[in-house]
Simulated scan of single mutants.
Amino acid sequence: MHINLPTWLTLFRVALLPVMVLVFYLPFRGHNLTAAIVFVLAAVTDWFDGFLARRLNMTSAFGAFLDPVADKLMVTVTLFLLVEAHRDGWSGIVMAVTAAVIVGREISVSALREWMAELGRRATVKVAFIGKLKTVMQMVALVVLILQHEKEAKLLSLYNIGEWLLVIAGALTIWSGLHYLLAAWPYLREPIADREA
């Protein structure tokens, strides 16, 4: 199997995940800034591999499979790190609930797309603008929270901004999930016998 440049970038994004986790926990000065930079680098490769695949017509079945997997791994691993780092009080509850909503939506929409693909209707649940807006908001929130996950007093307001951005991303997550569900609902209501006929 030939692996093209966009797919190598996607694999590189996956390889950055353990690096980010390691840096997140290592006790050196500026570790949070370094972890945020690694996350941003991974996010940039997410955009760049898609751009190259379209611009250079270098799409592949493996790349099309791996790209959304890498995206979801990046977001999920980062959310787990942040939830583990913020377990106290209402802030911890908000973080955990928001993370659960985001991860639950990612799993549900992935399953929905797989089901719709089996029906030959994958285009019905293709990525919409609300999904892209959710992704941007989510990425910005995660960068801010990684950068300030230790909640230093002098930058507490920055942490609060990240927390609110993540809550907004969680709300957009629910909205976009409902958007995809409503688009697929007419096909989900059909009896299985009708589909097979």
Rank of each mutant, 00 (worst) to 15 (best):
V167Y: 08
D67R: 07
L56Q: 03
A169Q: 02
R121E: 14
L56C: 02
I102L: 05
K134H: 11
E196M: 14
A42M: 12
T78W: 13
M137S: 10
I161F: 14
L81Q: 00
R55L: 10
A123Q: 14
W175A: 14
L73M: 14
W164T: 07
L172Y: 12
L26K: 00
T173N: 08
L73I: 05
V144T: 03
R54S: 04
V75K: 05
L142Y: 01
A171H: 10
P18G: 04
L178E: 01
L41K: 00
W47V: 12
W90H: 07
R55T: 04
G170L: 15
M139T: 08
A111T: 03
W164Q: 05
G30M: 04
L79P: 11
L147K: 02
H86A: 04
E190L: 15
Q138L: 13
K134A: 09
F80L: 14
D46C: 08
V14L: 15
I102W: 01
S60W: 06
E150M: 07
Q138T: 04
L147A: 09
V44S: 13
T59D: 00
L156T: 05
D49Q: 06
D49P: 08
V14I: 15
E163T: 00
R121G: 12
T135Y: 01
T98L: 09
F129R: 11
F62L: 03
L73H: 03
M58R: 04
A123F: 01
P68M: 08
A100V: 13
L133Y: 10
F39I: 05
V69K: 10
K72Q: 07
S60M: 00
L5M: 12
N32V: 01
N57L: 11
W115K: 15
V125E: 04
M139L: 13
F48C: 07
M74L: 15
S110F: 12
L165Q: 10
L158P: 01
N57S: 08
A15T: 13
V136T: 15
A85D: 05
G89S: 03
V101Q: 12
S60L: 09
R29G: 09
Y180D: 03
F24Q: 13
R122Y: 08
V23K: 09
R113Y: 00
I174L: 15
W185F: 15
S157F: 07
N57T: 02
V77W: 14
A85V: 00
L5I: 05
M1L: 04
N4Y: 00
L182H: 14
V23W: 06
F80P: 11
A70E: 06
G50L: 06
A61D: 10
D67Q: 09
A70S: 05
N160Q: 13
A99L: 04
V144N: 10
E190T: 15
P191A: 11
T76Y: 02
I130L: 08
I107S: 05
V19E: 01
R105Y: 06
F129P: 10
M20I: 02
R121Y: 12
Y159T: 01
A183K: 02
T34Q: 14
L79K: 03
I130C: 08
M58G: 07
V21F: 05
L112E: 01
L5G: 06
L5N: 03
H86P: 10
H179W: 13
D88M: 13
E150N: 01
V21R: 11
D67M: 04
F65G: 13
G92W: 04
I174G: 12
L147F: 03
